[in-house]
Structure formats: C-alpha cells, structure tokens
Amino acid sequence: MTITVTRRTFLAGSAAAAGTAVLGRPGRALAADPLAVAFVYTGPIGDHGYTFAHDVGRRAVEAHFGDKVKVTFVENVPEGPDCERVIRQLATSGNQLIFSTSFGFMEATLKVAKQFPKLKFEHATGFKRADNLAIYNARFYEGRAVLGDIAGRMSKAGVAGYVASFPIPEVVMGINAFTLAAQKHNPNFKTKVIWANTWYDPGKESDAAKALIDKGADILCQHTDSAAPLQVAESRGVYAFGQAQDMSAYAPKAHLTAVVDQWEGYYIDRVQKALDGKWTSTDIWWGFKEGLVGLAPYNAAMPADVKASADKLKADITSGAVHPFTGPIKNQKGEVVYADGKKASDEDMLKMNWYVQGVES
C-alpha cells in the first residue's frame, strides 16, 4: 500500500490527519500491523534522476514486503523550514521508520529524531547520527571517476562542462574525481564548473549547460537531477553523462553512460531489520563493491578501447586496486595535497573543500 503526498497537500492536511493518526506510536501494536515507512524527497519522483532513484528503492520495498508495510512518500520538499515540518508530521502520523533523502535535510532530521526517540530515522548523504538516527551514503565519486576516464578519451577539446548543484563535499569530490581520471589520459584536461545552486531546476540546469558549451566544453557532466543538460547536449551535438539513472531516452546520441544509484537492496535490508526488531543506528558508505553504485549501459558510439578502459577502471576500483584519490595530487594553486602514492582517507574526502588543478569554478 502506498500513500502518495505532495508537500503542499501534506502540510495542508496534516492537522486533520493528526486527529485520526496514532501519534508517535513507538512500535507495532499487533503482529499483523504493517510497518509504516515514510520517504522524504527533495525533488519530484519524475525527475528521472536522484529522487527517481530513491523512489525505485521505495517501490522495491513495496514489491518485496507487500502488505507487511504501509509506505508514504512526500516529494518536492525544500531544504529549509518545510522539511522539518514534513518530517515531524510524518513522525506524528504513525510512521515508524522515516528515510530523509537529501543532504540539506540533515539538521531537521536530527532535531525531529531527538524529539521522537522511540521512532527510527535514516538520513542519506549526511554525517550526523543519533541512537535512533542512521546515516547512509553512496560513493558516487567512484562512478564519476569512470565518467572522467571516458571524458578524457572522448573529448576532443580537452574541456568538460560540469553543471553542479551545491559546493558540499559530495559534489566537490565528484568534480575532482572526474577531473583526475580525465587527466590520466590528457594531462591538460580542464573541467569548467557552473553552480546552479539547486538540485532540480530544468531551466537553470539548461542555462548552465548552454553557457558551458559556449565556453568551449564538448562534453558535459552534471550533479543536478533533471535531464535538461543532456537535452541541451543532444541539441548542440556534444556528449554528456546522465545523473543517478540511465537518462539515454532523453538524449540517445549524447548520453554516453551515467552513474546509477541503486538503493533497492539497502532499503529492503533496513526495512527487514525494522520488521525483525534488529534495526540499529548504522553508518554506511558503499560503492561499486557493495552494489550501491553502478553504471548505465554505454552508448554504442563509444569506441571499444574506451569501453575497455572504463570497465577496467571500474573493476580496479571495485577490487581496491585503484583509489580515485591517489597522489600525486595538486590543488588549484599548484600545492601538493597528496604526495606520490598517498591515498585520501574517507575523513579527508568527507570534508573536501578544495579543487584539483584543472578545475575552473
């Protein structure tokens, strides 16, 4: 069973719903009661990007557990005061396990979790935990390194355009991993970045993509969630990479591949633990090895040697033979950040606030 809610109707109807909901129910009253699970999304489920990927995971939960769960989701929730209200209202409406899926929801999720210590909360891509608040993240930078490997071989200009959302470590490390991998094939490779300051705004993303192509980029990457940059690439005759899902339907000629977010297994596992009474607050950061990160099928336009190089890099990252952040690495000022052979630690990457040489932001 699914309850589909938009932010506006959820906020408007929450007061009335609270009158009939079991407020703050700490556990399952009867063995036959379904587990009430809620998802909070920053974008629309139709973005065919990041939010869509999480919603694929939600639907996998429903398909796997059937009537053992009752699932609610709220889409288009801004990262601000609204998200705290939405999360709190989900908590007071009988939900026992709440997933908030955007970095900007972190403080609100933590605050509400402290107010409802008997409920279970999980926050994606953040770093703050509590006894009843778990955090989970994907090593997106591993996939972006493979995209960079492809870009370094496919770009004739040696210039990529990068449509970025917000300058948080997750996005910064993706830009850096992409650039470093491209520079393995072309040491002079440059990545030009335009910040859209949004996760999902097709108009802004489209304008950024056009500006980057005008600045000389002949291949585009993005860390925003709509297909708009790909559609611009298709119309302008340049290559591009999708975001979070296979977006080739929107740009069959331009779309080379995409980093694919594969949340299904994680969500099923966490719901199962809640059903079994074995849920605990955990902190995971999974990538290729654990199957949380994947790649969309390659465009047939990619030469065989480019595909082979990408496959090898993916395999080497999966096995641990290659770490995308292995020195020598210099920052934009030319200062050595990692000496030859030194690898960045997880702690370093999770607070990354600098760019490698070749990034123009």
Rank of each mutant, 00 (worst) to 15 (best):
G126L: 10
A53V: 03
A254V: 12
I329L: 11
M173S: 15
A339F: 02
D131A: 13
D225C: 03
D311E: 13
G158S: 04
A124C: 14
T224S: 09
S155D: 03
N137Y: 07
D55R: 04
A164P: 12
C221T: 15
P187I: 05
V193T: 05
Y267H: 11
P229K: 07
P297A: 07
T51F: 10
V159G: 04
A164F: 13
A310Q: 01
A258P: 08
S226M: 09
Q222V: 02
G66L: 00
V336M: 09
L147I: 05
G341V: 08
D149W: 03
H323I: 04
V172P: 00
D82S: 12
P297E: 05
A304N: 07
S281R: 09
D348N: 05
I284T: 14
A145E: 02
N331M: 04
N76C: 13
A315F: 01
G148Q: 01
G104C: 11
V171T: 11
A209G: 07
F103R: 06
A38P: 12
L35A: 10
D225W: 06
G174Y: 03
K111H: 08
G80K: 01
K314N: 00
W286G: 00
W285Q: 04
P328F: 07
E122A: 14
T179Y: 11
V5M: 13
S226A: 08
V159L: 11
A258Q: 06
F73P: 03
K342E: 12
V56Q: 15
F99K: 11
F99L: 09
L110G: 07
D207G: 06
F178A: 09
K210Y: 05
L295P: 02
A321H: 04
A244V: 07
Y267I: 06
K118T: 13
K343Y: 01
F52Q: 06
H255C: 11
K120L: 14
Q115G: 06
N331K: 04
E62S: 00
G237H: 08
G161P: 03
P202L: 05
A38W: 11
P297Q: 08
I135K: 10
G237M: 10
A164G: 14
A53H: 00
F65A: 02
P202C: 04
L110V: 14
G203I: 12
E360G: 07
S235M: 07
K111M: 05
D225V: 05
K343L: 03
R85S: 14
V61Y: 06
D149F: 03
Q243N: 15
H48M: 12
D131H: 08
L295Q: 07
R59E: 12
G24S: 15
F99H: 12
S281V: 10
D316G: 04
A208K: 06
I87H: 08
L256T: 03
E335N: 08
D316W: 01
K351W: 05
A211S: 12
G277R: 08
K118P: 00
L35N: 08
P169G: 04
R58P: 00
P328Y: 08
I150E: 01
R144P: 00
I317W: 00
